[in-house]
């Protein structure tokens, strides 16, 4: 049980440190961000950042709708991300 408490404590301190660190980062709403920036920030929350060239424009439309729902992305975020993927693939 002590081991669990120690590990929990370490994790809690790490989380607090990281959160405080992140709070100092630049704060800008999604409306001011590019599709490329949103692509880099959101996809990585679950999996590695996908390569735009792996799918065609039509596929990205389908994947975009799927990810909007599965990953709970906002409409603005997914529209910008899909437009970016279609532009550079």
């Amino acid at each position: 049980m002590n081991k669990i408490k120690i590990i929990s404590g370490i994790i809690a301190v790490m989380i607090l440190t990281i959160t405080l660190y992140s709070c100092t980062a630049q704060r800008a709403a999604a409306s001011k961000k590019s599709g490329a920036q949103l692509w880099g920030e959101n996809c990585i929350r679950c999996h590695n950042i996908p390569s735009p060239g792996d799918y065609n424009d039509v596929d990205w439309e389908t994947i975009g709708l799927h990810m909007r729902i599965r990953a709970n992305l906002t409409e603005e975020e997914i529209v910008k991300i899909v437009e970016f993927m279609k532009t550079v693939n």
Binding site: T19, S22, A25, Q26, R27, A28, A29, E41, N42
Partner: peptide, 12 residues
């Protein structure tokens, strides 16, 4: 309910 307090979506 999920909250992402930071603009870079790094924390949830």
């Amino acid at each position: 309910l999920g909250v992402l307090p930071l603009s870079n979506s790094s924390v949830e």
